[in-house]
């Protein structure tokens, strides 16, 4: 998932890409694949490029800026120790210095990263025809309407009504679970197991579905901890 040549940090101003001193073309390739993979996630963010010591021309920066804007990302600053890269950035009207970069607000992507333990949050209702696929957990704050599909390698948590199709543990993780405030999916899959929601009796209540002896079971959530 992480590229060898490019590292990413979430900073207060948006996203910071740090590129290594390798060949520019390789860096460019790595950056675009990274961005392409996460375009939904990063959409609309402001980007800072930390070019380290490498020399980058203004043409190359311009090409990157164009490429990023194709994914709805705005390159606004370039950090560099290389004088000619700094000049190139200034020539394009990009900032070459950002404030409080090393402050406590910085979250380091690498230190919070565990393989398969990433999650994304969707803060909206997913309507028919939408499909989310993610290598990690998926959290939806909103409803998942019939005709929408959620596929996650990890667990799925819906803070709302879940009525579409949901597949947790899609790569075979049998410990994945599906939770929802109202669990009424058209079809619920965990790892290789497929189940159909039985007709509900009584009031909707928060439920959690998981695999038990190779079968999908759903249990009311009444945490009395």
């Amino acid at each position: 998932m992480m590229s060898n040549t490019v590292t990413v940090k979430g900073i207060r101003e948006g996203i910071l890409f740090h590129i290594s001193d390798q060949d520019w073309n390789e860096n460019f390739q790595a950056l675009t694949t990274l961005v392409k993979d996460r375009q939904e996630f990063w959409k609309g963010a402001k980007v800072v490029l930390d070019a380290g010591n490498s020399e980058v021309t203004s043409d190359q920066l311009l090409a990157l800026k164009d490429e990023l804007s194709g994914y709805d990302l705005a390159l606004w600053a370039v950090l560099s120790e290389n004088k000619s890269t700094q000049n190139a950035a200034q020539f394009l009207g990009l900032a070459t210095r950002i404030s409080r970069l090393e402050s406590n607000l910085t979250t380091d992507f690498e230190t919070t990263y565990y393989q398969g333990e990433e999650a994304i949050i969707f803060n909206k209702t997913l309507r028919s025809g939408f499909r989310i696929e993610y290598d990690g957990h998926i959290i939806v704050i909103g409803d998942v309407n019939p005709g929408a599909e959620i596929v996650a390698s990890g667990s799925v948590l819906v803070w709302g009504k879940l009525r579409g199709l949901v597949h947790a543990g899609a790569l075979g993780n049998e410990t994945a679970v599906v939770c929802a405030l109202d669990l009424q999916p058209t079809q619920l899959r965990i790892a290789e197991q497929i189940s159909i929601t039985p007709k509900r009796r009584g009031k909707p209540q928060p439920e959690m579905a998981y695999l038990c002896d190779g079968k999908v079971v759903a249990e009311a959530w009444n945490y009395k901890g």
Partner: peptide
Amino acid sequence: VRDADRIIGLIE
């Protein structure tokens, strides 16, 4: 209603 939901999603 299902189709309307899809359309509303596309409009959004």
